[in-house]
Structure formats: C-alpha cells, structure tokens
C-alpha cells in the first residue's frame, strides 16, 4: 500500500513546527504557487546545532543550492540532503521577516511575520526568538544583479511545485508561509504551504 506520509497543512501567513527523524524525507509543497516558505531546522539532540545558510554557503561556495547538495549546520555538519526540487530557485540570504520588517521598513504595526510564526511554533520546544535559526527561504527568488545587488521579485514556483530533502539527523523543523503582502515576494497573495514527512524508501 502506498505510503502517503504525514501531511501538515501550514495555513497562509502562519507557521508550523514538526520533527523529522534521520532517514525520513521532508517535502515542502507550494500549494498554489508563488509562495515563499521560510524553513528552519535544528538538531533534536542539541538545539544549539542549527541549520545555517551561512555555513551552507561556505561549503557550497555559492549563494544557491541544488539537488545533490547538503545543507549544513552551524557546527559544519550536513543536516539535510536535497534530493528533489521542481523549482531550483530558493533564497538563503534574507533573514526572516519580523515585526520590525513591517514597522521600520513599511510603517505597518502589528503585521504577521515569519519570525513570530516560527517562534510561536518552536516555543513549545523551549526555544527563545533568538534561538530561531536563520531561514532557508524556499521558493523565494532573490537573483543577483550585475553589481551585486539583490533583486526583489516574485517566486517562479507554480502550483504544486515542491522540494524534498532527506534528513541526515533527527531534527526539529518549522515552516512559515511568509506573510509578506506588501512587496514582491509572494505575488502580493499569501497562500498555504503543505509539508509531507515520509520514510525515505516511500518517497521514491
């Protein structure tokens, strides 16, 4: 019988946390397309070891990652292996939007934001807002201009596009459907994200 795995629905503009065991795969699905999903992870056994875009960059010698690449921890260890990706464009540069992203940059108080989305879900694991790792912004599109600037633009992802990663360690993970509805980033239309967790053998 086919294993459909555990499905977690992340409502538009909200977050969800979950655990993934070593050997399981986690698939992040952009249900309606053009929606960034902030993804963070840390080791279940030692939450001070966190998935890190900065350390991944050093390992890959690239801003971007592709199928076959490992995503690295703050301790320099591979935590996830990218095994499928129907989009191929993700961001590992922009910090999670937080309350100040909206209050300082856009003069809006009280807007939903990724940092609070992630922390609200991770607080039950005893984590403070400062413990929330820097995110990988799946499906987010931040191309490099010829003069080293970051272009602010919408994702290229279409409905049902996904990325699948194999967990190499037991992980606490969280996903936020980015609530950014002011600048390009989610097509000015915030939509849900689905997460599917399966045994590795069932995903292929």
């Amino acid at each position: 019988m086919e294993d459909h795995g555990k499905v977690i629905h992340v409502p538009a503009g909200h977050g969800r946390a979950f655990t993934v065991r070593a050997g399981q795969t986690v698939t992040i699905i952009d249900v309606e397309g053009q929606q960034a999903a902030d993804f963070v992870a840390m080791c279940l056994a030692d939450s001070s070891e966190r998935l890190s875009p900065v350390h991944t960059r050093r390992e890959l010698q690239s801003l971007f990652f592709h199928v076959g690449d490992a995503l690295m921890s703050t301790h320099g260890n591979p935590l996830l292996h990218v095994i499928e990706d129907t989009v191929g464009i993700h961001d590992a540069n922009v910090p999670a939007c937080d309350i100040t992203r909206f209050s300082v940059d856009f003069a809006i108080e009280g807007h939903r934001n990724c940092l609070d989305n992630l922390h609200e879900e991770l607080a039950s694991f005893g984590l403070s807002p400062f413990d929330v790792p820097e995110p990988f912004n799946l499906f987010q599109n931040g191309p490099v201009t010829s003069d080293g600037r970051m272009r602010v633009t919408d994702p290229t992802s279409r409905p049902g596009d996904y990325i699948t990663m194999l967990a190499l360690r037991d992980l606490i993970c969280a996903v936020s459907s980015c609530p950014q509805d002011i600048i390009p980033g989610n097509g000015l239309n915030v939509t849900p994200i689905d997460v599917v967790i399966k045994a590795a053998s069932a995903s292929t």
Binding site: L63, N93, V94, P95, T100, R101, V104, D105, E134, V144, G148, R149, M150, R151, V152
Partner: peptide, 27 residues
C-alpha cells in the same frame, strides 16, 4: 550588528560606501 539585516536593508549582497550597517532590529 546584523550582517543579514544589513544585506536586506540595502537589498545588496555586497558592502559599499554609504551603506548603513544595521542592527537585528533594522535600525
């Protein structure tokens, strides 16, 4: 000082003259 918020504050991957380096609260 937050290098990550500094990049997004100026939408720039590189540091240039006149750029503001900002805190983790984007100031």
């Amino acid at each position: 000082l937050s290098v990550h918020h500094t990049r997004v504050f100026s939408n720039s991957y590189v540091l240039g003259l006149g750029m503001r380096l900002v805190t983790n609260r984007r100031r």
